[in-house]
Design a protein around this nucleic acid. Structure first.
Length: 486
RNA sequence: GGCGCAUUCGUCUAGCGGCCCAGGACACCGCCCUCUCAAGGCGGAGAUCAGGGGUUCGAAUCCCCUAUGCGCUACCA
């Protein structure tokens, strides 16, 4: 590629970005990293009415959490700033004025009422929708009068009324539109802010964006943008319209599809690495079998020719599976760090603070049983409780008599009191004891499991006993015995 | 209504004319392992490649039509 690759992610701070939006950001970022180019973030805050306070930080925090770094934009600056469109108004105005002077745009004084009526009328008569060009045909005198009156107005782009606009899309190949079918869209709103169309085209030009990679929902706007580039005398960047991500109901992702913001996935116990890996697979693939791969691999092989066209449905089940894969791959230390905030939030306060050394020994026991971090607190409570509370009836396993259960506990106590406390020695000793008692491992260990953890499922018994330590285990066995004989 | 895009197992996908009566993964089912739960291993079921026409010796792959889905059709992005 002759000139430098420069791509951008241009979110509008009207809310927190959902997974589809971030996936688009990530594809841009991957494209930039793959080509050794620049990834810029630009905030498209041109709709004053829909601005949501805090949205910008939410967006940027989400990117940072995913470790998607940007070379230019908010928080990092850059030579093409400002990276907030609301701070670039004079630029849009001068571009609009130029277009008016050239005859490629005109002021439109149509009221919202007239526009609404027009639309109604068009719908009624089943005509194609769109502005009818009323103000384009205003006479000079008429126009002057309105101007002198200071009538509110917008600036509209004057679309060619014939010919076709052609786009060679990097993902969808060749697409064409009849110019007469696209109406004279608004460039500048009456509040002086540009619309997306004007802002995106001028900024992409001045920020020297080489490739516009955005979601497919923008494909219909491409002819407008292409015509704008032409009228402004700019060379348009390459375009690639990425497949969209749909909710389980096949509709465009929105707030009602559960987790909306990217940060919610963090709070729901997903790892950024897993989410990233999963997201990239929505619309891109390496080959016919590789799915779990490090980000370096993804960056190395990320090319547009491996991006698919059809929209994808977001499947949380598979994300959870992949999260589990990533969890199993972590070091005990890293997992302990990742889990800590969830324990601090999910464990009852009297069990806090968590002893990190102790946690480090627990972590290997739950590592391969964890899918999402939020499951952790529930899985480890009995490691921290003084005495788990449960129905003593559970100590008597199915097919066992009360006497057998009592005997199992009574005989185990002295063994646990003097046996070297390692998984191996404990296992050898207790297996032997089980045989002496004539109990199947299933029943014997089942009883002990309840006594030790207060649960019917847990990590392997002997490991669990070792980690819990002699004092806790002995006292829990005594408690169990007291319950049964009491 | 108009315009545009899309269409391979329930879901994510491989496939860019013969390797495909279609491969992998999640989920599902079974077996093995086993002190429970997982993890892991092995196996199974699951797609007449949306439907119909062509082109070709040969089509999931190219062309046309239809259907369906989605997107756009705002002084929202």
């Amino acid at each position: 590629m002759a000139s430098e690759v420069r791509v951008r992610y241009a979110p509008s701070p009207t809310g927190l970005p959902h997974i589809g939006n971030i996936r688009t950001a990530m594809f841009n970022w991957l494209f930039a990293r793959h080509h050794g180019g620049k990834f810029v973030v630009r905030i498209e805050d041109t709709d004053q009415e829909r601005l949501v306070p805090g949205a910008v930080d939410g967006i940027l925090d989400g990117l940072e959490w995913l470790d998607i770094d940007w070379d230019e934009g908010p928080r990092v600056g850059g030579e093409f700033g400002s990276y907030f469109q609301s701070e670039r108004l004079p630029l849009y105005h001068s571009e609009a004025e130029r277009l008016i002077a050239q005859g490629d745009a005109y002021r439109c004084y149509c009221t919202r009422e007239r526009l609404a009526e027009l639309r109604q009328e068009q719908e009624r008569s089943r005509q194609s929708l769109g502005y009818d060009g009323h103000c384009k045909r205003l006479g000079d005198a008429e126009r002057r009068t309105l101007e002198e009156e200071g009538a509110p107005c917008v600036v509209r782009f004057s679309m060619p009324d014939s010919g076709v606009t052609h786009l060679h899309d990097l993902i969808r190949d060749d697409v064409e539109w009849q110019n007469e079918l696209v109406d004279d869209f608004v460039l500048l709103k009456s509040d002086g802010f540009p619309t997306y169309h004007l802002a995106v085209v001028t900024d992409d030009h001045y920020m020297q964006i080489s490739h516009v990679l955005r979601a497919e929902e923008w494909l219909s706007s491409a002819p407008r943008h292409l015509q704008l580039y032409r009228a402004l005398g700019y060379t348009p960047p390459e375009h690639g319209h990425l497949p969209m991500i749909l909710g389980p109901d096949r509709a465009k992702l929105s707030k009602r599809h559960g987790a909306t913001s990217i940060l919610e996935y963090r709070d729901d116990g997903f790892l950024p690495e897993a989410l990233r890996n999963f997201m990239v697979l929505l619309g891109w693939s390496l080959d016919d079998k590789t799915e779990v791969m490090p980000i370096e691999t993804i960056q190395r092989y990320f090319t547009l020719d491996r991006v698919g066209k059809p929209a994808a449905i977001f499947d949380v089940e598979k994300l959870s599976w992949m999260n589990g894969v990533y969890i199993r791959d972590m070091s005990a230390d890293a997992l302990a760090n990742a889990i800590m905030p969830f324990l601090e939030r999910g464990l009852s306060s009297d069990l806090l603070p968590v002893d990190r050394e102790y946690l480090l020994r627990i972590v290997p026991l739950l590592q391969e049983r964890l899918k999402v971090l939020t499951e952790a607190p529930e899985m480890v409570t009995y490691f921290f409780e003084e005495q788990p509370v449960y129905d003593p009836a559970n100590l008597v396993q199915r097919g066992m008599s009360d006497e057998e259960a009592i005997a199992a506990l009574e005989k185990s106590l002295p063994a646990l009191e003097d046996c070297p406390f390692t998984t191996e020695t404990l296992e050898a000793r207790l297996r032997e004891l089980g045989e002496e008692l004539g109990l199947t491992p299933r029943r014997f260990f089942g009883t002990l499991r309840w006594a030790v953890t207060g649960r019917n499922v847990s990590p392997p018994l002997f490991e669990t006993i070792e980690v819990l330590g002699r004092d806790r285990v002995v006292s829990r066995l005594k408690w169990a015995l007291a319950q049964l004989s009491g």
